[in-house]
Design a protein around this nucleic acid. Structure first.
Lengths: 106, 106
DNA sequence: AAGTTAGGTGACCAAAAGGTCACATGTCAA
DNA sequence: TTGACATGTGACCTTTTGGTCACCTAACTT
């Protein structure tokens, strides 16, 4: 399995995206902390976290018996750069900003 | 299934990512053109294209009996914005640029 | 009209992924 | 050192996904 395959497969599951959201909101969470936020057994969460690690989307630092998790944004940026070149980036940004603006108005 | 679920699931398959790469390189290809580039039966490719359409990653325009395909970069941009805020974007960009620079040197 | 070309549908099967559990290791605290 | 806490592993089953095929409709060409 290639690197980018691991990244995309890791992102394909909603539970794993939720875990990334949690780490985006507050980094340095332990595995137990993450488990508490997800409706699933401990084992399921641990499995998902492992997939995220192997994809390089999450990096860990050990502290005693705890395992602290951090979001790594680099693979996300590489996805962006794969299909959005510098030239069209400006147009897309404008479009997305417009989308946000319209949603705020409602 | 939610919108973003469709997008991430669509990106999870290597054949579908190849199709996006092809459209990124040159837009407006017909289904037959895409089929010719992929090692798979016509039916398999058509199925993959359908998944990309339903995710909004590809938009189509009909011209007679042909179906022309175009890459839509907006969902990709939204993935980026979900986990990379404006604040850290500069750091990540610098990191990624450094990565490219190092790879060019070899 | 007849033949050819472009594309669409539903069924089917094999492979992969998601989730749970029994069991195991290592770390802290009293 | 005894017990509680944090995490890791491999087996197992169910569901989902990827790919192919037989069969179909619609449009262009001559």
């Amino acid at each position: 399995m290639t690197d980018d395959d691991r990244v995309f497969k890791a992102l394909a599951d909603p539970t794993r995206r939720l875990l990334l959201d949690l780490l985006f909101a507050r980094e340095g969470r332990s595995l137990s902390e993450l488990e508490a936020e997800v409706e699933m057994t401990r084992f399921g969460v641990a499995k998902h976290v492992k997939v995220l690690e192997e994809a390089g989307l999450v990096v860990v630092r050990r502290s005693g018996r705890e395992k602290l998790h951090f979001l790594n944004p680099v693979p996300i940026r590489l996805i962006h750069d794969r299909w959005i070149d510098k030239y069209t980036e400006r147009h897309v940004t404008a479009l997305v900003d417009l989308k946000y603006a319209l949603e705020d108005e409602t």
